[in-house]
Every structure is written in structure tokens, then in C-alpha cells.
């Protein structure tokens, strides 16, 4: 008996989403098969990696995380430029962490000032990621949408609680929204429907499934993404046919095993290489589950993952 590859007949396709404007824009999505199953479908747009940049100087980063950015980390604009000019970043995710009411609680105006300076200085697509507090993000991202007019940025996280405010501004200023739900297929679908009803078009939505780092819930994110893709591609669930973004950097770098030094626990090995690998393995695992954009921190980890994407797509 001759061998024939049993193929899946995919009935759906992921929407294509463009972020950024002009020559600096990127398009993600468009897949007609499971991630990298190129023997039976296509991935017209390779998954992308965005470098994360914070809106303020981080206080608790490991030395080996600071190392690539030490000269620029005090200034978000210089930091972002270094990611692009030195490390070849194709996209920037600006994390608006200072706004967190449970943290620095910076006021909206001051955060928006940072956003304005960074956005004006960049020519790559930008993701603007709020602090995760629904009320604060509603105010913050509304204002951000306004100052980013014409840049076609991606705004997130947009939740069930604040999708109306942020969604309306995104429509008004023609931005992409990142719909964020807590590791659940039905909640993800529900929020996409709500955004659709509000008038956000299908080529303006990216999904954030909520990301768990390696050893800290990665498997939940992994399986929910696989279920999202299964529904989108084989069960004609049009309300799940959106690209997926995973904001993974901080989920990995904040963990205990990413902070311990070799001197603290010799059998964990070199701390820098270990953390870079923990970040890269998390990213690759999520890419295999269907991520279209992953947000990463360390340039060496980015390079490793970039190469894996290139080889899987070769």
C-alpha cells in the first residue's frame, strides 16, 4: 500500500490585519492551515516579533535583561530606537505600565506624553499596551488613540469592561484593537462579537488569549489557542478567525527561575542564557499554537525565535 499524507480540509482562514502605515506597516494573519503545517495550507504572512519597551525606566529588571539597553533604558524613545536600529525590531510594543493604579499610578496626560514622543520617533508598527486595569485603560487608551491618529497602531488590552470606550475611539481614529480575554474560547468569541456589533471591522481585531509563561500556565494558553485555531479553521467559526498576539516577555522574566543566578542555584546553569532560552522556548511554543505576534524582551532570544520562524517557513 502506497503512503498518502492524510490531509485536513480547512474550511476557514484567519483574517489579515495590517498594523502601522505606509512603508513601515506589517500584515499578519491570512493562514489557511494550522501553524507551520505548510504541506496542506499556507501562511502568507510570517509571524512577527515585537520588542517590548516600557513607558518608564524599569526598577526590578535583572542585570542581564538591562545589559542590551543600559545606555537607553531611561528614555523610552531612545530605547525603542535602539531596538530598531541596533537589533532590527520589526515592531515595538510600548508597555504603558506606569499607569497602573496599583503601581506608579501615573496620570493619563503624562503617559500620553511619553506615547506621543515615542510614536513620533518611530517608523515601525506600534502596539500600545495598557496597564491591565479596565477603568484606567479605558481613559488611557482613548487618549492614546487620539494622539496616534493616522498611525494605525494596535491598542490593547481591550476587555469586556472597556471595549465600548476603546472600540469607539479605535473606529474613530482607525486603529486596530487587541481583544483580551482570560484563557477561554467562548469569552474570546463573545468579545469579538461585541466588538463587531460596535462596528469594529474584521480586519481591525487581534485576539489576546492571556499569556502564561513557561512553567506558569503556558499550557493553558497553548491549548486555548489550539482550540481557537481549530474552531476558526475547521469549524467555520468566523468570530474566532483573527490573528493572535501573545505579550509574553514579562510573564517569563518576572518568574523566580528567571531571577535566580547560577550562584544561587548552580544546577539551573547560566542565568542569562537560561532566561533567554526560557523566553525563546515560550515564544516558540506559542507560535506553534497559533501566535501571529509575540512580544519579547531580549534581542538574543528574538534572534533565536526569528531563525526558527524562518526555518519553519523555508
Amino acid at each position: 500500500m502506497g503512503f498518502q499524507i492524510p490531509k485536513i480540509r480547512y474550511t476557514g482562514r484567519i483574517n489579515k490585519i495590517t498594523i502601522g502605515h505606509g512603508t513601515g506597516s506589517i500584515t499578519i494573519g491570512g493562514e489557511s492551515c494550522y501553524p507551520f503545517y505548510l504541506f496542506e495550507g499556507e501562511m502568507p504572512n510570517p509571524p512577527r516579533i515585537a520588542f517590548e519597551v516600557w513607558d518608564h525606566e524599569p526598577q526590578d529588571w535583572q542585570e542581564w535583561a538591562l545589559e542590551p539597553y543600559r545606555d537607553v533604558i531611561h528614555d523610552s524613545t531612545l530605547w525603542a530606537r535602539k531596538c530598531i536600529d541596533t537589533y532590527g525590531a520589526q515592531a515595538i510594543a510600548l508597555q504603558l505600565k506606569s499607569a497602573d493604579p496599583n503601581g506608579m499610578d501615573a496620570d493619563v496626560d503624562s503617559v500620553v506624553n511619553v506615547v506621543r514622543r515615542v510614536v513620533d520617533a518611530l517608523d515601525v508598527p506600534i502596539i500600545l499596551w495598557g496597564c491591565g486595569n479596565d477603568e484606567k485603560d479605558a481613559l488611557l487608551l482613548k487618549a492614546v488613540a487620539e494622539v496616534c491618529e493616522g498611525k494605525n497602531v494596535a491598542l490593547g488590552p481591550v476587555s469586556e469592561k472597556n471595549y465600548k470606550q476603546i472600540g469607539a475611539m479605535a473606529i474613530g481614529y482607525n486603529h486596530v484593537v487587541i481583544a483580551s480575554t482570560p484563557i477561554d474560547v467562548n469569552l474570546a468569541k463573545q468579545l469579538n462579537i461585541l466588538l463587531g456589533n460596535l462596528g469594529v471591522s474584521d480586519n481591525k481585531i487581534i485576539m489576546d488569549p492571556t499569556t502564561g509563561g513557561l512553567g506558569y500556565g503556558l499550557e493553558y494558553t497553548y491549548s486555548v489557542m489550539e482550540r481557537d485555531r481549530m474552531a476558526a479553521l475547521t469549524q467555520e467559526d468566523v468570530k474566532l478567525q483573527y490573528p493572535i498576539m501573545c505579550n509574553l516577555a514579562n510573564e517569563v522574566w518576572k518568574t523566580r527561575e528567571a531571577r535566580l543566578k547560577k550562584d544561587d542555584e548552580p544546577k539551573l546553569g547560566d542565568e542569562k542564557r537560561r532566561t533567554i532560552l526560557m523566553e525563546a522556548v515560550t515564544a516558540v511554543t506559542l507560535l506553534l499554537a497559533g501566535a501571529d505576534i509575540v512580544v519579547m524582551r531580549h534581542p538574543e532570544g528574538v534572534l533565536l525565535v526569528q531563525n526558527i520562524i524562518k526555518e519553519l517557513m523555508a
Binding site: 512553567g215 497553548y222 548552580p266 537560561r274 532560552l277 522556548v281
Partner: peptide, 17 residues
Amino acid sequence: QGESIFPLLLQRLNIYT
């Protein structure tokens, strides 16, 4: 190496949970 095998062991734990 500790730094290379540890992330893989964690990933394996996650995927096979």
C-alpha cells in the same frame, strides 16, 4: 547544561500536564 535542559523540562511538564 542547566540553562538548556531546564527550560525544556519545564516545557515538557507543561505540554504533558
